[in-house]
Each structure stands twice: as structure tokens, then as C-alpha cells.
Amino acid sequence: MRRPLAGIKVLAVEQYGAGPYATQLMAELGAEVVKIEAPAMGGDVSRATGPFFLGQADSQFFQTFSRSKKSIALDIKTPEGRAAFEDLVAQADMVVDNLRGDQPGKLRLTYDDLKGVNPAIVCGHLSAYGRGNSRAGWPGYDYLMQAEAGLMSLTGEPDAPPARLGVSMVDFMTGTMLAFGVVSALLSARTTGEGCDVDVSLFDVALHQLSYPAVWAMNEGYKVQRLPRGAHPSIAPSQAVKTADGWGLVMCQTPKFWEALCDLAGAAELKADPRFADIPSRHANRPALSEAMDVLFGTRTTAEWTALLGGKVPFAPILEMMDALDNPFVAEVGMRDVVDHPDRAEGLAMLACPVKIDGERMPGARAPKLGEHTDEVLNSIGGAAS
């Protein structure tokens, strides 16, 4: 199997979610990612994140973010550990971290600190609020960004408190941005022989996700409101709908999908109703349209609507998480995997890598035990663990 990042060596000073997510993406695409974990601290803090553990210094949470990597136990704050680290930098393509914004400088992980060791090294920094600003030393997490960047104000029902997304999507997006940034910088470094610093922050990425509502607000003073059923701000019907036995989500983003919905559902009266004649009319009469959609969708079950509309009108069932995981389509596309793990005889069920190369999904491997590859990695440079 061809892995596009094969031969790339990444040193990762990382813990918890966003940074490890970035390097896991690179590892599953073939990069050799070496987690540098401080043994006195018990390594990556997510090794101790419950509630489900796997032997010593390992957890299902940790496995979620550090598959396909190597781990060395090394304290880079000691002279011996620093010397070994710099020997590794000399042979590496990237050094990435997800520390507070003031820490890369203190730990000498920046390009200025490392270019003397390796002029082509790419140094990636993922922090809460960025480096070189008044918040550089602030700790921060995904949910805080959803709050301050305005994402929570756009999420939830209009008569309910603001709501966060159900998963840490800002972490995942920021990790993806870091992976994209450092791989892009590596392309330049391989051409010029000169590396650089690459910075991304949770705050910047969260703000960037405001996208077109932010453009509307900055240029027109338009405030996107939370709408019932998670409706789209400018197109209808594009929202959750009640079915006979649950919920679905329909998105008639173009006139042809509205017409197809009416035709397939046998709703000629809705298609002929002047209140719903075109996109502006449907938007202006959204409350009446929403009521009409509930009446219409209440005539069939969610499964019946999925069978009727699938491939013709954008519609999806709103599923509970386990139902989503057990969806036959998930099995068809191979998005569930089982990896071998020494502390789980039946293997560990995981979600597979979402990237395919030449039609093949990248295979996954378990995350490493703390220091599992210390001897292997340090012996390759003639060093010893510290």
C-alpha cells in the first residue's frame, strides 16, 4: 500500500487531543511519528483519561488520538535528554507541539532554536491562543473557543441556552489545520532547504469556522439567529423534520430538490402553494413551511423516508450514536476497524482513517505503550534514555 508521507520523520511533544489528532493523521498516512513523553509525568496526560483503561498508562481515550505512532520516554529538560532530542532533530523533518503559546520558546522548540541543528526542520506549534500575543500564556480548551468565537451562540434552539457541539470539533479542525500547515511547509523546506515555524491556534481556527455568517455580519451588520430545528439561515426547507417514528433532516438547497421532494412524496398541493413557490417565498414563510413539513413527514417512518428519498433528495435519518455506528453504510465503506492490543484479547474497536489513497483506506495500528520504542529510536542515533 502506498502511503504518501512514508519517509517523513516527525517528533511530537504533545498531549491530550488537538496536537495528537494532527500527528495521528500524519502517522496513518505513513509518517514516522515519535511521541516524546516525559517519564516523570507519566507521559501524555490522556493515558490517564478514563473511564476506560487498557493496562498500565493506557486508555481508550489515548488510543483514539495516538494510533500508529512510536513512543520514547525522554525528558528534554535535562542536559542528557536535550542532547538526545537534538540528535533526533538532526534526522527529523518536523518537530510539532501543542503547548501553551509561551512554552515553545521556553523549551527551545522554535525554528530559531533548532535551525542550527537542522536548517530544514519544520516546527509546528498548536496552542490555545497563539504565540507572541497577550494570551500566549493562557491555557485553553475546545469548549472555551466555541463559547468566545461565537459558535455556541449559533447552536441550539432559539428558546434554549446556547449549546456546544457534541464533540470537540475545534480540536479536530485545529489538528487538521496543523497537519495541513506543516506538510505544506515541508514541501517548501524540501525545495529550499530552509524550514520555518508554523502556528495554528484553537481560537483562530474556531473564529475561522464562522465562515459566511461572519462575512455577512462584518459587511452588512446581519446577525444570523438560531432557528428552530437547526434550520439553514437562508434556505428552506433545510432543517430537522418529525417523522412517524423519529427525526430526519431534509435539505432542499436547490429548486430541483424541492420539486423532487413534492413529486416523490405526492405533495402536489405544497408544490402549487404560492407561499412556497421559490426560495425567497419559502424563506419568508418558514414557520408555515415547517408545520407543513411535519405533517408531510409524519406520514412515514424515518426508514421509509430514507428509502423513498435516498439519492434523489438530500435527506438523512437523525440517529443515536450507536445506531450511526451500526449503519450498514458504515460497514460498506469500511469506516470501522479493529486493531490488535496486548491488553484486549478481542482487539480494540476503532474508527478507521478517513483518508483513502488509490481507493485504499489507510490501515491503523494501536497507540504505543509509554516508552515502548525508546531503545529502538535512541539506539538509532547512538543515544540513551534520560
Rank of each mutant, 00 (worst) to 15 (best):
R2M: 05
V13P: 14
Q15C: 12
A22V: 09
A22W: 07
T23F: 10
L25M: 15
L25G: 01
A27M: 07
E28V: 07
G30W: 05
A31V: 04
E32W: 09
G42S: 12
G42D: 07
A48T: 08
P51F: 01
P51W: 02
L54E: 04
D58E: 15
F62P: 03
T64W: 04
K69H: 11
K69A: 06
I76G: 11
I76C: 07
G81S: 04
L99N: 13
Q103K: 15
Y111V: 09
D112T: 09
D112W: 06
D113I: 15
G116R: 03
H125T: 13
S127Q: 09
A128S: 11
G132D: 15
S134F: 13
W138M: 11
Y143T: 08
A149L: 05
M152C: 06
L154T: 00
T155H: 02
P161H: 12
P162K: 11
R164W: 02
V167Q: 02
V170C: 04
G181Q: 13
V182D: 03
V183C: 12
L186R: 13
L187F: 08
S188F: 06
R190C: 03
E194Y: 01
C196S: 14
D197R: 08
D199Q: 12
V200T: 15
V200L: 06
F203E: 10
D204T: 13
V205D: 04
S211W: 08
A217W: 14
N219W: 04
Y222H: 15
K223L: 11
R229S: 10
A231Q: 04
A240I: 05
A240R: 07
Q253P: 00
F257T: 00
E259A: 11
C262D: 01
L264S: 03
A267L: 03
D278T: 01
D278S: 07
I279N: 14
A284G: 12
R286S: 05
P287W: 13
E291P: 02
D294T: 05
F297I: 04
A303S: 14
G311R: 13
V313G: 10
A316S: 15
A316V: 12
E320A: 14
A324Y: 04
N327Q: 11
V333M: 06
V339H: 12
A349K: 08
P354M: 00
D358H: 01
D358V: 00
M362T: 02
G364H: 02
R366K: 09
A367T: 04
A367M: 12
P368E: 13
L370M: 15
H373R: 03
H373K: 07
N379A: 14
I381Y: 08
